[in-house]
Amino acid sequence: MPAPLPLDPIAEAHRQWTAHGWGEVADGMAAVTSVMRAQQIMMARVEEVLKPFGLTFARYELLTLLHFTRTGALPMAKASARLQVHPTSVTNAVDRLETAGLVRRTPHPSDRRATLVELTDEGRALAVETTEKLNAEVFARPGVPDDQLETLLRILAGLRRDAGDFDTGGDPTRW
């Protein structure tokens, strides 16, 4: 990890935006840039934990999604929708996980057009092990004080809801 910078580059960009006549959008620029940088920081922490297991976050998410299902299997299209990623991304993740013996493709029992992706016993065990490690090393301490987490979750849920990620059924307080 590199040494901290002597100044906050986003605050400096905000100052520059204002100095160049874009003050009315400087807060928005700083917010977007801050969220993007926070995502980079969090992703680096997650990937540091997953790397020894040979997993990327995308593959971990798929394993965990399958682990959370009743049967340990989902149609690939449904996995894509639930993970909010393009079907090609799920196909790529399944290819890698299948090569590692963590999932297998099986024909859908009632829809000949669909393929199920199914967790193997090894995949289930790895999903549990990596989740325990992430819980201990990342999720228990996400880098935001406990008394601010709910506020952050509400703010980000509002952003995601307004972008069309989900529908709260008219209850804007649900996240």
Rank of each mutant, 00 (worst) to 15 (best):
A26S: 05
Q84Y: 05
F166A: 01
D111G: 05
A127G: 03
V25Q: 01
T64P: 11
Y60G: 00
P2K: 01
V103C: 11
L66M: 05
E48I: 15
T71A: 06
T64V: 13
P2D: 10
G143F: 05
G23E: 09
A11E: 00
V49K: 05
M43L: 12
P107H: 03
T106A: 12
F68E: 02
D162T: 02
L102C: 11
V144L: 11
T56Q: 09
V90A: 01
T91Y: 07
R82M: 10
P107Q: 06
T106G: 01
A100N: 08
R105H: 04
L134W: 08
A44Y: 07
P107A: 03
E61T: 07
T173M: 07
M29P: 00
G28N: 07
A3W: 06
P109S: 05
V46N: 02
M29S: 00
L65R: 04
G72S: 03
P4Y: 09
T168A: 11
Q16K: 11
R112P: 12
Q148F: 11
D147Q: 09
Q16S: 12
D165Q: 15
A163E: 01
L65F: 07
E150C: 00
V144Y: 00
W175V: 04
L126G: 02
L62D: 02
Q148L: 14
E47N: 12
L149G: 02
T69S: 10
